[in-house]
Write a protein that binds this DNA or RNA. Structure first.
Lengths: 253, 253
DNA sequence: AGGCAAGGGTTGTATATACAAGTTGCGGTT
DNA sequence: AACCGCAACTTGTATATACAACCCTTGCCT
């Protein structure tokens, strides 16, 4: 529901019943541009008609033509340059987007119960690697935490986190064992950009023990770094023996 | 360069030198809204000022206020409903986005050479699973291919693909051994939406042999399904013994 | 009490206009 | 030939306005 296909957005009519509302003018222009790109008529880096040309061709105002170009620019299909013109984006620059639902959504989406337990929370001395990742000033305090997630009381996932203490509300840093992951997550990593690294690893023996999985199970390890206000590194270990724990994801190419 | 941070986009000045151009009015409004959301003043689902209210408060035209709201809506921070108003998006609905650079970009980004070799290409009988994944009609022909990617003449990744033959240009289905992955990829999976599944697996013995890695190395397996015009399933196996083959990725939370 | 209709508020689409800011290329000067 | 500057074109920002489509509440009518 949230995302609709990047191209073809306006071609297929509104689903359900025969409510065919006349498409907006700017969607017609968008469709025209998309068709020319898809057919290869306008290859990568090709110049597309300017706002003025579209204005004349489709007999609309400049703002309407502009909206079509702007929409497609936001979708990464076009690239605009003030003074120069509008061009078909090179596909390598419009990189693919993979959406990973967070743990809570993933579990509740399966209609299951989600609990989380704080296994460990302690102050640690910062190693240089972590200091860089967290973008720390001189010897700022850092906590290391481990959180175990449960799906219907069954352990499924373990999180390792390095948290810059000064940026987390104090009440969340007490030695509790039951937490609501949503609260924790949103306080530590709000609406900010982050970089992730995904890696396949073999779970260590103690992790396997905590997750109740066979030793040396292949796991996904995700490192997350946020910049801006909060600095956080989270290591999430996602086991995937079969369908049950598989990480559902969604990608726009 | 392509993506800028969702919030804070306008706060930090343009980098490099002291060229401080006056920020546009709509960025000021965006900043105002973002600050209220971040501070918790406007919680999830809270109603944000209407276009009219912003128009009066900031003494701008409605179209300028509108642009601020629209920009933030496209970033997933706000949700608009015609007739009802504009509201702060629930964070679960603005799911995280993980960007995976494609193989070519990944390798060329490291300044290395990228080659690919087609190991296998044959027509196969469709299993039911594959027929469903590819969204096949009755007994449409399917090809199975394996492509080995090289970084500086070193094997790094093996792709398994099930391709709906009828949708791929014929010249790409001949029995060639050297291919340009970019051409292949863009012909098979153009600008369309797809779903991905990531899974951690242990590489099978023959895969290990082809990739020249130790047996039972943990790998990432990515299944990709596109709908719309082309139906494709690709299995990409990404080894990650250390830093060398790690998949770089990028996520907006 | 329940249902229906009207109206006010809000977002969506569209137009016309004006100026600012950046790029490109042409042409004249040196 | 090399350089400079101007003009034309293009996109960016901003305003004022109009109507359409839609939501929600209010109030009237049954």
């Amino acid at each position: 529901m949230t995302a609709n296909s990047p191209l073809h957005s306006s071609t297929s009519a509104k689903n359900s019943s025969a409510k065919v509302t006349k498409p907006a003018k700017y969607t017609i222009i968008k469709q025209y541009i998309c068709e020319n790109i898809e057919s290869g008529e306008w290859p990568q880096n090709a110049k597309v008609p300017s706002e003025n040309e579209l204005t004349l061709k489709f007999d609309v105002s400049r703002m309407t033509a502009r909206r079509a170009l702007q929409d497609l620019t936001e979708q990464g299909i076009l690239v605009r340059s003030q003074g120069a013109g509008t061009f078909v984006a090179t596909f390598k620059s419009q990189s693919s987007l993979l959406e990973i639902r967070n743990i809570s959504d993933e579990i509740s989406g399966r209609g299951h119960q989600h609990k989380a337990k704080q296994l460990l929370l302690k102050s640690i001395a910062v190693t240089e690697e972590i200091a860089i990742l967290l973008n720390l000033k001189n010897n700022e305090a850092v906590s290391y935490s481990e959180i175990l997630h449960y799906e219907n009381d069954e352990p499924i996932q373990l999180e390792h986190r390095y948290v810059n203490v000064s940026l987390v509300p104090e009440y969340l840093l007490q030695d509790f064992t039951e937490i609501t992951p949503h609260e924790y997550l949103s306080s530590v990593a709000p609406l900010t950009e982050a970089t992730h690294e995904i890696e396949a690893i073999l779970a260590s023996s103690d992790i396997c023990q905590q997750l109740d999985i066979p030793s040396s199970t292949p796991c996904l390890q995700v490192k997350r770094r946020t910049w801006s206000k909060q600095g956080v590194v989270s290591f999430a270990i996602l086991t995937s023996p079969g369908d049950k724990y598989r990480l559902g994801s969604h990608l726009k190419f």
